[in-house]
Design a protein around this nucleic acid. Structure first.
Lengths: 201, 201
DNA sequence: ACTTTCAAGTGACCGATGTCACCTCGCAAA
DNA sequence: TTTGCGAGGTGACATCGGTCACTTGAAAGT
């Protein structure tokens, strides 16, 4: 029996996935949670073999949850699950200790197969996405540039961002300008869009 | 037996929902599709009693699919399903002929109940969201203002939008300015964010 | 010790953006 | 039929945003 922990914030989707897995004779869902920050405690209690983690979750995201899990329960493998095929997501998931990485638009029949492979410690990942992640390289943004960019995308002015991050307005504009150039964008919004698509912010 | 058509673009989620519904003795999934523009043809072929439509889909969205369905197969009821609890979504879904409206973070056990009620023609909707939709009122944006706003959110300059919509640059700026004021925003990005949250664009 | 790298800041420049006053035109309700 | 409204446009204005040159200080390689 493979013991599975299921972390996914949308109740309907989580319940449906549990139903899907309940049809497999060798898979048992031993825990269901809807927040990233409850993954570790639930895992310590239920001792799963595989944790199926969504990336987009309230609390902390699935990537941070995977890192916590590797620290607290290293024998538990992680299969990351996400809506968005962003190369940076895959990169960050892998370096936070995930064994597999699966997209939600993969065939439903693949899920059980992927779980079994993950339980055996085999790598599960989309070849296209892996190639993309390798060719894109790592994020060219410095941590400060990324921080300023995320803080500016919601329509805040440079002055707002400066107040929020305790910087001068000129510095904020300089960081944004650097980010815009590094990403080959024409303004902050385009830069944010590109960085989001790559999974860099 | 209630015959159900399932339209949802993410294969894994769709398969999982089909598994969830297959456990109900009185519900049968007679069609599964992943695009909005294939809903009508699939429905005409499979003659479902209830169409379960996701809003976010490639091709045409679930709201447009619902409208097409009401024209081509009026006896089929529509239960709309969506990730985002945006008041404008509910409003537009209802006026395009949906019988029910359900969020993906509703309890999984509710789905079958909602389908049965939809099949009987009863209204299914989240009271909170309905109240919100009523208190928000309809979109204050004129059709042109909304059009200009959606065309400007991706980081395009006013000149770009002007070229794309065959307008003068000044007119684009005027429309954006009107949208910004009507939504109580401070710039085009904030206006876009507000309009998106409400489901007005 | 020296160079490189990055965060941070300053001051200046110019184009883009948001606002306002005011214009025409077509259409629909009073 | 007049009145009002929205689409579309023009020109002017102040502010914001993106860029550049240059400086400082701290950390890390060589």
């Amino acid at each position: 029996m493979i013991r599975v922990l299921l972390a996914e914030d949308q109740d309907l989707v989580r319940g449906a996935m549990a139903a899907l897995l309940s049809m497999e004779p060798d898979i048992e869902v031993v825990a269901e949670i809807d927040r990233g920050d409850e993954v570790l405690t639930a895992a310590l209690q239920s001792q799963p073999d595989v944790a199926l983690l969504d990336i987009e979750m309230p609390g902390v995201d699935g990537i941070a949850a995977a890192a916590a899990l590797r620290g607290g329960l290293p024998q538990c493998r992680v299969l990351m699950l996400t809506t968005f095929g962003r190369p940076g997501y895959l990169r960050r998931a892998m370096s936070s200790g995930a064994t597999g990485f699966m997209l939600k638009d993969a065939p439903a029949a693949e899920l059980a197969v992927a779980i079994r492979r993950t339980a055996r410690g085999e790598r599960v990942l989309d070849p296209q996405l892996a190639a993309q992640a390798l060719s894109d390289g790592d994020s060219p943004l410095s941590s400060r540039e990324a921080e300023v960019l995320v803080s500016a995308v919601d329509g805040s002015s440079a002055a707002d961002v400066a107040r929020r991050l305790f910087l001068s307005e000129g510095t904020v504009r300089n960081h944004l300008s650097a980010a815009i150039q590094k990403l080959g964008a024409r303004n902050r919004m385009e830069a944010a869009r590109i960085a989001r698509e790559k999974g860099w912010i």
